[in-house]
Design a protein around this nucleic acid. Sequence first.
DNA 1: GTCAATTTCCTCTATATTGTAGAGGTAATG
DNA 2: CATTACCTCTACAATATAGAGGAAATTGAC
Lengths: 110, 110
Amino acid sequence: MSNRDYLGEFEHIVLLAVLRLDDQAYGVTVRREIEVRTKREVSIGAIYATLDRLEAKGYVQSRPGDPTPERGGRSKRFFRVTAPGVSAIHRTHRAIRSLAEGLDLLGSRL
Amino acid sequence: MSNRDYLGEFEHIVLLAVLRLDDQAYGVTVRREIEVRTKREVSIGAIYATLDRLEAKGYVQSRPGDPTPERGGRSKRFFRVTAPGVSAIHRTHRAIRSLAEGLDLLGSRL
DNA sequence: GTCAATTTCCTCTATATTGTAGAGGTAATG
DNA sequence: CATTACCTCTACAATATAGAGGAAATTGAC
């Protein structure tokens, strides 16, 4: 296993999406959330590969969902962010902020 | 060339360091700035490889520095962030903010 | 009931791009 | 020519990304 302390760029995005979706986070919704919020198109494969990596690191946890009464559909795999996952977000944000603060980034406030 | 629009995690860090160092950005100072601000150790090789990639993408530009009157020392290669580089930072920050805002990230304000 | 069509979601494989370290070479100065 | 400060190169590990295709669920025709 890696010893990396920081989230990769896409890992970061995906982790935030899972956090934001709360108990409705699974592959398809995570993808949609990212596309809607960032206007960035991502493949479903990219989502799951990243989710798997985040799970391997202990930053998210997954559980199988019960079938829903909708037409069709394989049962979902739900994800939630763990405490270490939240810490990783904080570390990453701190690193960025430490270098960005004070810079005149046109009101970017990040 | 790639079509990636977003900065990788380390590219992001390095680009911010160059921006912050203004006209004093070269390999050694970039490395030091990152280490001091983020408490993260990085090898000099990692710095230059990333700087080279950022230059290939047009996000930074380098120019050779004149020799200084200090004892020893090969002449420096100075870097500065280009306008597209600043845009890349903005895009990246916007993407993060769009997913982070509204979340209760314990006052993380990012 | 059961079978096939349909739907929604997930798994897997393969490749490109980034991240990372460190050995070793190069251009200065006194 | 010894010493110093900096940079280049190479090699490998981890992350990012796409997309084809398989799996599980529901519904309706028979």
